[in-house]
Design a protein around this nucleic acid. Structure first.
Length: 895
RNA sequence: GCGCGCGUGACGGAACGGGUAGACGUAGCGGACUUAAAAUCCGCAGCCGCAAGGCGUGAGGGUUCGAGUCCCUCCGCGCGCACCA
């Protein structure tokens, strides 16, 4: 996903000032000679807790940095995706902290949702109990991971003190008409008598009952996100800190299309009506030979009322159209309604068909059929024997209606179109739109793909919608003074409808308007509502008097948001919308909540399975499989450890329960420590790419930390050394020192600008390898090693904070490493006398030359041409040109 | 079908603005240490070749002194999504 490469950190990093030499030749307290992660991780975490290190306090004098990872759904245990997400966020947070920023890194729980109800159905435990238990478990796991989180700002969306503000803002939207009621279609399980989520419908049947799912029209609440379509689309361009890919996806989802709405007049029961369609190809209007409507279109329903065959077809269309994707894959089918409409310009009569490929939700729910120039209409016309008419000419190419050619859909000049003949695409669209408008049959229009956001869910474990239904007054908003409408937490759903609806103490109430007995709304809100503003609440934590307060002005926008690519559309779009609504209500000053976005890749693992003759595939955990390799290490087969028999490889896939290829992060933390888990996650791949789990890789990360520990141990138990004097070093010491500062410059760039933690780790590994090879001959040499080790520990501190905490102490420091500033690069250390240049002849590598760093081009050229191997390859050829790239290479062009 | 990406050793990946392809790690091989194994340390390691050298970044073409990187065509894989009219 390189297009989604992390953007540059736009904020200016303060100048750290001149380089200082902070070392004291003090002896550190005695150091354990073995790396024992459990003990040092507990000690480091205890220190942060006692010092309140990560408690964020607003301070207008300091530049803030709001680093936010998407909060988890409390499903039970942390999975590797969480570990990756929170390690990336923590690394960025700790790095920015070292840069002197006032960092806020909060955490919370997206605690409402369907899995809690499913668990309740399976185990008979109230969703609340299950959810709160999971939260305690996962909070403990997050602490053991060592994330620098401000737990004082924890947000739990299933708590009334949070969701009361969902209700409060919903009422404000209702007052302004942004929230409104209309009917919507839901999946109805006739056996369980309950509404099913899309994911609970499998092949058109209810997941528990297997009953054929029916469609039902029920009243629901909607949020008018389409009013913000223009702004949501337009503002994308300014979100420079977002991956291009996500912006494109959102733009496609919002889907702005310019076209023409065309009304086809008809008479029905003596009344003059118009069938409206939307098209981007108004220039093909004279090629229309039929009009197709969606199964849910009023005309289709009208015709079906008196035609049983059509009624059956309409019912069939409606049954299988669970999702739009599903509808997209089915065979294109249709049926005539027997009705006709008139062409608005030619007056010709056109048949009206019902087509299963026409979407009720987009445009007008009807399309004009132009088989001559639309591939889908062409197939439809061929199947049902409808006329095909050419009305666009492209370079006088011969048109034949027996087979589709791709160029039929190209723009060209109108023919057989009366007075529009000869016009090009744009001119024809203009002219036809103008004439339609003059005739009162339509005109130019902008169409959006985006639809309003239906938030009603017929489910228990969610935020109650604050409405009371009164026989006399209708749907009455709950008065602000009566908020929150508290969700009772002791109910246990059993799969047959919403248990709230059967709880009289919840449902029975008095109408706030007339006082007569009334019924409380039992629908709850879509959980995307909860996650649409939690990032604002972190900045207003604990405020019982208002939804948000002035602290939002300090912390927002989020400087860095980190989460999975699967949220690229819905969550991020809803959050942007919600923020804009709050802005328009005067609650916040900002219009976009997330300045920079990092979408992390999936965590994957190998998949192994057997497919027995009985047919059902059985998956095996990679931990239970032994790989066989040939002499070169190429895998040739795999066997199950338990029975020694072969298993098939299913490649690599996202970790999932169904594929049995998940790895429990807790097991890794228990075995190697949190630092190893974190280091492996950050080293194995750049954050935006998918990451493949590898036991050996985790082992390798652990090995590196153990070696780091050992190198520091050997150093601090070695001879004393004087303070570093950079000016008086021998060549080898100077070289190590140059590498150390070069590495520091690279790692700072990798963390801050590129967000490529994997290459930063590789660079520190190289530095440590060099330190291991370096045999200091003098006390001054030990001072250089000391500096290199200190820099290594500081550089690794954002990634592996626990071992860094311990090693920093061992190197003789009283202040905790977490409070240290990011070290400054010593420009003097980077200075080199000579530089090695690559020499090519005709673009091929033929040698290297060493030249003074300030050598001019003539000197470099001369040195290159003097090189023996260069002379050998140039031979008798004439040197036509010598390209010199300063500090890099010389290319001798000969021929 | 459309849109957006991505194809580099056995594997994960590196190569940042067109300038030494394969950093770093994993797996592998050889050696040291050990009664032995593990751990650790040292070394080898893209392919062909004794070497000199040649060939190599999915395939083919182009631009350039120079292409993994830019452009075109094709193939494969992944993700997203609309039969969007």
């Amino acid at each position: 996903m390189p297009s989604a490469r992390s953007p540059a950190e736009p904020a200016r990093i303060p100048d750290p000032g001149p380089f200082r030499y902070p070392w004291r030749p003090s002896r550190a307290p005695p150091m354990q000679d073995h790396y024992e992660p459990a003990a040092i991780e507990a000690a480091a975490q205890r220190h942060w807790e006692q010092a309140g290190t990560f408690r964020a306090v607003e301070d207008p004098a300091r530049a803030k940095y709001y680093c936010l990872s998407m909060f988890p759904y409390p499903s039970g245990r942390l999975h590797m995706g969480h570990v990756r997400n929170y390690t990336i966020g923590d690394a960025i947070s700790r790095y920015m902290r070292m840069q002197g920023r006032n960092v806020l890194q909060p955490m919370g729980w997206d605690a409402f949702g369907l899995p809690a109800e499913n668990a309740a159905i399976a185990n008979g435990v109230p969703p609340a109990r299950w959810t709160y238990d999971n939260i305690s478990m996962m909070r403990r796991q997050l602490r053991s991971l060592g994330c620098g989180l401000d737990w004082d700002r924890e947000v739990t969306t299933c708590r009334p003190e949070y969701y009361r503000w969902n209700q409060w803002l919903f009422l404000r939207m209702l007052e302004r008409g942004i929230a409104y009621q209309k009917t919507g279609t839901v999946n109805w399980d006739p056996v369980d008598r309950t509404v099913l989520a899309n994911e609970q419908v499998i092949d058109g049947r209810g997941w528990r009952t297997g009953a054929l799912v029916e469609k039902r029209e029920i009243p629901m609440y909607y949020l008018g996100i389409t009013r913000y379509a223009e702004e949501l689309l337009g503002a994308l361009a300014a979100l420079e800190g977002w991956p291009e890919r996500v912006r494109t996806m959102q733009a496609n989802w919002i889907g702005r299309t310019e076209g023409v709405t065309i009304g086809f007049p008809y008479e029905l029961d003596g009344r003059r009506e118009e069938l409206r369609v939307f098209t981007t190809r108004a220039d093909t209007l004279f090629g229309v030979t039929f009009v197709a409507v969606a199964a849910g279109h009023p005309l289709a329903r009208h015709a079906a009322a008196s035609d049983p065959a059509l009624a059956a077809f309409v019912a069939e269309c409606e049954r299988c159209s669970g999702t739009e994707a599903e509808q997209a894959t089915q065979d294109k089918k249709g049926m005539p309604t027997g009705l006709t409409v008139l062409h608005p310009l030619s007056g010709r009569a056109l048949p009206v068909w019902v087509g299963n490929y026409v979407l009720m939700a987009y445009g007008e729910g009807a399309v004009m059929g132009v088989p001559g120039h639309d591939e889908r209409d062409f197939a439809f016309a061929q199947r049902y024997g409808l006329p095909i008419r050419q009305v666009i000419d492209v370079d006088a190419r011969p048109y034949a209606s027996d087979a589709w050619q791709p160029w039929y859909a190209d723009h060209g000049r109108c023919i057989a179109s009366g007075r529009y003949d000869g016009l090009g695409h744009e001119a024809a669209v203009q002219a036809i739109a103008a004439d339609l408008e003059a005739a009162g049959h339509g005109g130019r229009q902008v169409q959006w793909r985006l639809r309003d956001w239906g938030i009603s869910r017929q489910r228990y474990w969610g935020c109650p919608i604050p409405i009371i239904h009164c026989a006399g007054c209708g749907a009455v908003p709950v008065p602000d003074a009566d908020l929150p409408v508290v969700l009772p937490e002791e109910l246990v759903p059993d799969g047959s409808g919403n248990p709230l609806a059967r709880l009289h103490s919840f449902v029975d109430c008095a109408c706030p308007r007339c006082g007569r007995p009334a019924r409380r709304e039992t629908d709850t809100m879509d959980t995307f509502v909860d996650s649409s503003w939690y990032f604002l609440r972190y900045a207003s934590a604990g405020n019982d008097a208002s939804m948000v307060d002035a602290r939002v002005g300090y912390w927002l926008p989020v400087d860095q948001y980190i989460g999975g690519i699967e949220h690229a559309i819905l969550h991020l779009l809803y959050s942007r919308f919600w923020t804009k609504v709050m802005r328009d209500l005067g609650l916040v000053a900002l219009g976009e909540p997330f300045a920079n976005l990092l979408t992390q890749g999936m965590v994957r693992n190998a998949i192994y399975f057997r497919k027995p003759a009985s047919g059902r595939i059985v998956y095996y955990s990679p931990a239970d499989v032994l790989l066989e390799t040939d002499a070169r290490g190429t895998p040739v087969g795999a066997r199950l450890k338990s029975d020694g028999l072969a298993v098939e490889s299913g490649g690599i896939g996202t970790m999932s329960k169904s594929k049995q290829n998940g790895v429990d992060p807790q097991a890794i933390i228990d075995r190697y420590g949190a630092d190893t888990a974190r280091l492996f996650m950050m080293f194995a791949a750049p954050p935006e790419l998918s990451l493949d789990w590898s036991d050996e890789g985790a082992e390798g990360a652990f090995r590196f930390l153990r070696r780091l520990w050992k190198v520091v141990h050997v150093h601090v138990t070695g001879p004393d050394h004087p303070p570093l004097e950079p000016a008086a070093l021998d060549a080898a010491d100077r070289e190590l020192r140059r590498l150390a500062h070069q590495t520091l410059a690279k790692v700072g760039d990798d963390y801050g600008r590129r967000r490529t933690f994997n290459t930063a780790v590789a660079a520190v590994m190289e530095l440590l390898n060099a330190v291991g090879r370096h045999a200091p001959a003098t006390p001054a040499g030990h001072a250089v090693v000391h500096e290199a080790l200190e820099l290594a520990v500081l550089m690794l501190a954002p990634l592996v904070p626990h071992i860094s905490h311990a090693l920093w102490q061992a190197l003789g420091h009283e202040r905790a490493v977490v409070d240290e500033p990011w070290p400054a690069v010593d420009a003097l250390a980077l200075r080199q006398d000579a530089v090695l240049l690559v020499v090519q002849v005709n673009g091929k590598l033929r040698g290297h030359i060493s030249v003074p760093v300030d050598a001019d081009e003539a000197l470099v050229r001369e040195a290159a041409l003097a090189d023996l191997n260069v002379r050998r390859f140039v031979g008798s050829l004439a040197v036509r040109r010598v390209v010199v790239v300063r500090g890099k290479l010389v290319n001798v062009v000969a021929g």
